[in-house]
Amino acid sequence: MDLTTLGGQLLGIIPLGDIVLYVTTFNLFMSVAALVFTVLIAMSRTEKQVEAQFGTLNDREKKVSKDEFKIRRFLSIICGIATAGAMITGDLFNFTLFVTLIGIVNIGIVSAVKEVDVLDSAFQYGIIAMLATLPLFGGAALILGTTGTLSMLEIVNIPTTAMMLFGSILLFIGVAGESGVAPFFATKAEMFRTAGSPFLVIIHLSSLLVIVRAIEILLIINKPF
């Protein structure tokens, strides 16, 4: 089996020294989707959330202030670019670095918000993300130790050993903790109850796309056939 079984045609590789980015139909689709969302976030305004007030018929509007808007937009764009990079990278360590960057920036995007529930959820997510960096990097290190390479284009040709299986399971646990998608960390949903819709969407998008890519990487490392 090779990369084309999973992702469709191999459209090309982009060598950047040791780190080789490879592009298949699957990777390209996800990377372009991440970039499209990043561009939209760069030019988007935020919404004003309308909530009812107790005691009167008026509404309360929750807005994002100018400074908060600028810093959150900056962090969202970084998150989007990191996601796009994580989608096409062919180097395992590069992938894990992007995933940790996404985890850190996800916390940063909501930590400027002044709502207690959101900050609580972000804090708990941050702790889990920190804990998950151990299996994440440990898994990648184990695979480097067993196979002698971090390049996915080479790992796909190396027959699977038990250590590679173990390393990839650790890697997946790390990615599950870092990205925090349900069902692995369902309370991350509380982080999304705040204003600032474009910035929240990149948190969700990055987590989901990272999990999808992690499944592909798992299949590359452990070839069932």
């Binding site: 069902p183 369902a186 949903a189 509380e190 999304f192």
Partner: peptide
């Protein structure tokens, strides 16, 4: 929006 996040399960 919030339900969409945890229905990703």
């Amino acid at each position: 929006c919030v339900r969409a996040v945890f229905s990703a399960a």
